[in-house]
Design a binder for these strands. Structure first.
Length: 779
RNA sequence: GCCCUCGUGGCGGAAUUGGCAGACGCGCUAGCUUCAGGAGCUAGUGAUCUCACGAUCGUACAGGUUCAAAUCCUGUCGAGGGCACCA
């Protein structure tokens, strides 16, 4: 037997597995429960980098383990292939985004094979496939019918570089998530999804999910539920208006502080509305409104905290105390949250306090009432009611770009927005040569004149197709459903097949999707559940957020930083098995860390040692020490894989090899097969090679059962117990596991180190924790 | 400012969840081996003191609880991420 040559072995088995269709997962196997291990499907950016390996090769260990544990495991893969980067790259290279994307998908699929993962490519989905996006459009229409997809004019985030609208979730610190250009506010008519209709359920549904705290709290904060009250303050002193004729509503989470309200503040937006309906305002007020609306976006980012504002010359009446307080306009009150107006309580609110200090407004006493009593009184007087508000905004899903799913709507001058009939789906994306975005904010699809003109499905008159495309987050909001039934041409997936796999028991991905993809997918599931298409409304029962593999500089890998690394060199030198295992060994999966290939030799040595060990002839009788180590490793690895503590799994394999070396022996035939099974999820190629060439099997090790361990072997004849004297370890004693406390105590007190430490002191108390610790208190 | 996660040798990290801190690996040191390169083997490797047995200190810092704290509590500092004038 020659030395370990991973490249030959790996290529051979990758081909063999593909030929055997080893990873095609049936819908159902007798006595093997189904389990889907879901990872976020990649964007086909061109080639696999180290982050892809981390994201896919490590969950593969988990998936392979459960398959060996007797589950029918589906480890699916697909491509989230629409989106801006394809379009930008295609523009640069002067090819069509579809062509560019398809090339990448083909190339990356080959690369994915080289990872040695158990992806079922027969179920692969691609969001740009018309047989896929037909159902994306179909779901949009179901939501349109329910009023959950609607068109409205709103203030939207506009990226001037990408020339398209962005959802709130895609704006990071006021900049485009993709290209970092400062986002502008534009008032445009857009297609929206009514995510706010599900705000409450999106919060309450989080409760029973096995998700990381970070993901759960991020969503909670994003949705931003606050409970409080709406209180109506009658207004007087409006020029030209009768006193008490008009009023203003405020939202507060602290109705108990109502008596501390010393002034009222309205947002510039609300003040503008008042002016728009004809209320007279001073030049000073008008100037303030104009100024604050223009400066807002930039200054807010600068963190401008100085309070500015102008008195309106109007007064408001506290509906319970009857007190009259002045009304101000100030831009620290937001137009798009609550009612756009607040009652200011400087005694209880820092911001109100700062404003009061700046403008010399009174700060009253801080006395509190009972919140419920206040609300009851308000209700009795018709001056208010309990109210819950959310920070969540509806999802703006229109995109004025070419490379996306066409929105299946027809604009008819007489019938309005008419859905494309289901039997005409998909509305295919026309093959446009000139797909550049236009300056006027219209989608490039407006240039596809032939495609554009249709007759109205309702009245038959000339009409035009919608030219916006959908945000790609729509595509990815339901892809996991399609994995269960990827070739269905009648439905997005049959209920029977979905019931076999869903909801998803475990979903592994990045924390960057906490308030985007994960939120949208949950929204989609809830809507489809309400419409009767799904039997569950929480799609992902357990979520694991993987850590980031950072660049060698310790920074998050990104093309703009230029620190993106791919592991091709290491794969060529050491093989895929070593790279997989090194990534597993490097750090806890949920933590990640900088990619430092220097340590990879440690893992490569391990695999070489295993290879060498198996080149020796098996022995007849097992060494008890090795047998014990083997069963301990089995227990620990089984436990740790389930916890996704993959780094300690690799340590356990190293310890096992150390134990074999220390015993100066080798393995029996039975032990060899046991070790190969333990190795199989981590180094699938090497394990398969040894299983065949050394053990002489003809079937795959990956269809073998996971080894069990003998717990009695792990109960050793004696245990070493540390003995503390006054909190410091002074000796260790070796006792039988079932030794009586008296015996252990006697042995502990007789230990040399204990006697020395005790000296003349009197033993006051002895605490014996069987098999763990003896603690002596002396004075 | 608020929220979440976290802080352990030169480095990545481990610690049975309150019970011998530093497993496992990288790196480093010494010796052996190889014509050489890469590599391999053996021993050592938290700090300080000690010829040595051993002792003291040590898990960001300061307190506290406990027979016993990296782990629990309080406060401070620092890092990363999220939200951010959200009433």
């Amino acid at each position: 037997m020659t030395s370990y040559q991973p490249n030959d072995i790996e290529k051979k088995w990758q081909k063999e597995w593909a030929d055997m269709r080893a990873n095609e997962t049936p819908d159902h196997v007798e006595e093997r429960p189904n389990k889907m291990v879901l990872v976020e499907f990649p964007y086909p950016s061109g080639n696999l980098h180290i982050g892809h390996w981390y994201a896919f090769a490590l969950p593969d260990i988990y998936a392979r383990y459960w398959r060996m544990k007797g589950f029918n495991v589906l480890y699916p893969m697909g491509f989230d292939a629409f989106g801006l980067p394809a379009e930008n790259a295609a523009l640069q290279r002067d090819i069509h985004p579809g062509e560019w994307t398809k090339q990448n998908i083909e190339y990356m699929t080959n690369q994915l094979h080289s990872m040695g993962a158990m992806f079922d490519f027969s179920r692969a989905v691609s969001t740009i496939d018309p047989t896929y996006y037909r159902w994306t459009q179909w779901m949009f229409l179901r939501m349109f019918e329910k009023g959950l997809a609607y068109r409205a004019k709103t203030t939207v985030n506009w990226c001037p570089k990408d020339q398209t609208v962005l959802a709130n979730e895609q704006v990071v610190d006021g900049h485009c998530e993709r290209c970092s250009t400062a986002v502008q506010q534009r008032s445009l008519e857009q297609w929206m999804m009514k995510t706010t209709a599900y705000a409450d359920r999106l919060i309450s549904g989080l409760e029973n999910l096995d998700w990381p705290n970070t993901a759960r709290t991020a969503q909670q904060h994003w949705i931003g539920k606050s409970e409080g009250a709406i209180i109506t303050f009658p207004l007087s002193g409006i020029p030209g208006q009768e006193d008490g004729k008009h009023s203003v509503e405020v939202f507060t989470t602290r109705p108990d502080t109502l008596f501390g309200a010393t002034f009222l503040v309205v947002s510039p937006e609300l003040a503008q509305k008042w002016i728009d309906v004809g209320w007279r305002a001073s030049d000073e007020v008008r100037a303030y409104i104009t100024e604050s609306r223009s400066k807002r976006e930039l200054e807010r980012l600068e963190g401008a905290k100085d309070k500015t504002g102008v008195a309106l010359g109007i007064s408001a009446k506290n509906p319970i105390s009857g007190e009259s307080i002045p009304v101000w306009v100030a831009d620290y009150v937001l137009g798009n949250y609550g009612t756009g107006a607040i009652m200011a309580v400087p005694a209880h609110d820092e911001r109100d306090r700062a404003f009061a200090d700046a403008f010399n407004l009174p700060i009253s006493d801080a006395s509190l009432r009972d919140a419920q009593e206040v609300i009851d009184q308000l209700v009795a007087k018709g001056a208010g009611y309990a109210k819950t508000t959310f920070k969540l905004r509806d999802w703006v899903l229109s995109r004025q770009r070419y490379w996306g799913v066409p929105i299946p709507i027809i604009h008819c001058t007489t019938c309005g927005y008419v859905p494309v009939p289901d039997d005409q789906l998909p509305v295919e994306l026309p093959p446009l040569r000139d797909f550049k975005p236009a300056d006027d904010g219209r989608s490039p699809l407006a240039k596809a004149t032939e495609w554009l003109s249709v007759s109205c499905p309702k009245c038959g008159e000339d009409a035009q197709r919608e030219t916006d495309t959908m945000d790609t987050f729509v595509d990815s909001s339901w892809y996991y459903l399609r994995y269960t039934d990827p070739h269905n041409s009648e439905q997005f997936a049959s209920k029977e097949k979905m019931a076999q796999w869903l909801p998803v028991p475990i979903y592994l991905g990045g924390s960057d999707h906490n308030t985007m993809h994960l939120l949208y997918s949950r929204f989609f599931a809830k809507v489809l559940f309400d419409l009767g298409y799904l039997s569950f409304e929480e799609p992902f029962l357990k979520r694991v957020n993987r850590g980031w593999v950072l660049g060698p500089d310790g920074q998050k890998m990104s093309k703009s930083r230029g620190n993106v690394v791919d592991p091709d060199k290491e794969v060529a030198q050491y093989g895929a098995d070593t790279v997989r295992m090194y990534l597993a060994f490097m750090a806890p999966y949920e933590q990640g860390g900088p990619w430092d290939p220097r340590g990879i030799t440690g893992v490569h040595r391990l695999l070489s040692r295993i290879w060498t060990l198996f080149s020796q002839e098996p022995i007849g009788e097992a060494s008890p020490d090795v047998e014990c180590a083997l069963h301990a490793a089995t227990r620990n690895i089984s436990r740790d894989i389930e916890l996704l503590s993959l780094n300690t799994c690799v340590s356990e394999l190293m310890k096992l090899m150390n134990a074999v070396d220390d015993a100066k022996t080798t393995l029996t035939t039975k032990q060899r097969e046991h070790v190969i099974r333990l190795l199989a999820p981590f180094a699938p190629h090497l394990a398969e090679e040894l299983w065949h060439s050394v053990c002489g099997h003809t079937s795959s090790v990956h269809q073998e059962p996971w080894p069990s361990f003998d717990a009695t072997l792990l109960e050793s004849q004696s245990v070493v117990v540390p003995v503390q004297v006054n909190g410091k370890v002074r000796a260790t004693i070796e006792v039988a596991p079932d030794a009586s406390e008296e015996l252990v105590q006697a042995q502990a007190l007789a230990a040399e180190g204990v006697i020395r430490a005790l000296g003349d002191a009197q033993v006051h108390k002895v605490i014996v924790i069987p098999k763990r610790m003896v603690s002596i208190v002396a004075r």
